[in-house]
């Protein structure tokens, strides 16, 4: 009522896909409701812990991840291997039990373990 409400247009991905005047990258951004600024903040965040983690001994193939930022990767659509986050981020993501439990719903696991996980 007092104008503080952020009216963000909710985009329908089905329509966005076929709007030829919008580049595919922008379609994704609009659909996810991401602003340009937000993206940059995320990038900076990534870079921050990228440098911190670099001091760790088991610093994995950071040269191996073809492109640190997603944009460079999606530019070349001939790449067969899909985009993956940096190893550091992946390891921290999958060592969290919450994301791991989510994933385990996709697996048929032996009952012994399933009882431990209360499934």
């Amino acid at each position: 009522l007092n104008g503080a409400v952020n009216y963000k247009k909710k985009w329908d991905i089905g329509k966005l896909i076929y709007m030829d005047n919008i580049s595919p990258e922008d379609c994704i951004k609009r659909w996810r409701g991401e602003e340009e600024e937000e993206e940059e903040v995320i990038d900076r965040d990534n870079q921050d812990d990228f440098f911190i983690k670099k001091q760790q001994p088991n610093n994995l193939d950071d040269k191996n991840t073809i492109s640190p930022n997603r944009k460079a990767h999606s530019d070349d659509l001939e790449n067969f291997v899909p985009y993956f986050d940096t190893m550091e981020n992946l390891i921290s993501k999958w060592s969290k039990s919450a994301s791991f439990k989510d994933l385990q719903k996709r697996f048929i696991i032996a009952p012994k373990i399933a009882t431990n996980e209360e499934e």
Binding site: I13, D20, E25, C27, I28, W31, S74, L77
Partner: peptide, 22 residues
Amino acid sequence: IDAKFITLLRDIKNLFGTQVFL
């Protein structure tokens, strides 16, 4: 659903004239 996916669907529309429904 990423840029690659959208490019693919646009190319499909241009060549086959069919659209997907999500």
